[in-house]
Each structure stands twice: as C-alpha cells, then as structure tokens.
C-alpha cells in the first residue's frame, strides 16, 4: 500500500490539546472534529489540508491526553499518514487501533521540510522524499501490530477473534 502526499511539518511535543482542543470534545462527529484539527497550533491547517497530506513531526508526537478524537480528527481531515521521530504511547495505540498509519523514523522526520512530497510504502516501511530523492526506512512494526493493521483496526481484529472463539 503506497501513500503519496504533501508535508505539514511540526516540531517536538505536539500534544493532543494542540491536535484537537478539549473544548471540541463535546462531539464524536468526525467531520466536526476535523474542522478544528490543529487549530491552536496552526490556524491555517484545517482550511488548507488536502486529502492524502502527511504530517511530519519531531519527538513525542501526540503526548498528553488519551483522547482518541486526536487521531480521528487528523484522519478525518484527510491526513494519510504521520511520520515522527517518535510517538507518545497512547496516541500510538489509538492510531493503530483506528487505522491511521503512523511511522517512526527520526531520519526522515529530521530531513523533511514543509511542502515537500513524500511517498510512503506501508508494507515495506519505506519513506521516499520525492523532492530530494532520499529514501528512509521506518522502525518496523511487531508482527502482532501488523495483524491489527491488516485486520483494519482493533475492533475488526477482536470481532474476528470472538467469532473464532465462538
């Protein structure tokens, strides 16, 4: 599975209040959440993000609250993938669980600039910068997580398991 998109670049410690401010957590509407994505961090994001765009960020992306609304808002806004130096653990789980592709790759995260185009091969875990021609390898997923991703997220994975268990 290959993804191609334009880069939004952010720094370290992008917290979940930055991704979706708590004042909007009185809804579960994905489109409404998406309309406020990144609002307090980057007021231009929600109006300009295009389907397929990719977020590239520094360390500890998604730190703070456990709100699943954060990856939901990014996914619904059209973001196809997040590449970061590393992720906060609850955001990591949430993204895998809801099927938002995320890749840990310090080299790509550091070298990529806003507005560049990346091509990401999720199966191979490779990230290619179309502007510079550089290719990077992301930290591979453990086998169990690949199974989660292949199933389409935790709910689908668990549903199949429950059916097998009868």
């Amino acid at each position: 599975m290959s993804i191609r998109g334009r880069v939004w670049k952010y720094g370290d410690n992008v917290d979940t209040d930055a991704i979706i401010p708590a004042r909007y957590l009185n809804t579960t509407s994905e489109q409404e959440l998406a309309s406020h994505a990144m609002e307090d961090w980057d007021a231009t994001f929600a109006a300009n993000v295009q389907p397929g765009d990719i977020i590239v960020a520094g360390k500890n992306f998604g730190c703070g609250s456990s709100r699943e609304h954060a990856p939901v808002a990014l996914k619904a806004s059209g973001i196809s993938c997040v590449v970061a130096e590393n992720f906060a653990r609850i955001f990591f789980r949430n993204s895998i669980n809801i099927g938002l592709p995320i890749l840990e790759c310090p080299e790509a995260a550091q070298a990529t600039e806003a507005g560049q185009t990346l091509e990401v091969d999720l199966a191979e875990g490779t990230i290619r910068n179309m502007d510079t021609g550089e290719t990077y390898s992301a930290v591979p997923y453990p086998e169990f997580m690949l199974a989660l991703i292949e199933a389409g997220g935790l709910i689908e994975y668990t549903r199949r398991q429950l059916q097998t268990e009868g």
Partner: peptide, 26 residues
C-alpha cells in the same frame, strides 16, 4: 481507563494506565 490520568491508581499499588476509547470498548 479511557483517560490518560488513569495512572493515578499507581499510588495504591495498581498497574493502571490510560488508553483510547477503542481499547476501552474491547
């Protein structure tokens, strides 16, 4: 718990950790 501050219960000696809503559904 579907709240990041679930870790509070470590004070009473529990292994307590925050997760997202889908984890909590399961």
């Amino acid at each position: 718990g579907a709240d990041s501050h679930t870790c509070t219960y470590g004070a009473v000696g529990a292994f307590a950790t925050g997760m997202g809503s889908t984890d909590i559904a399961v």
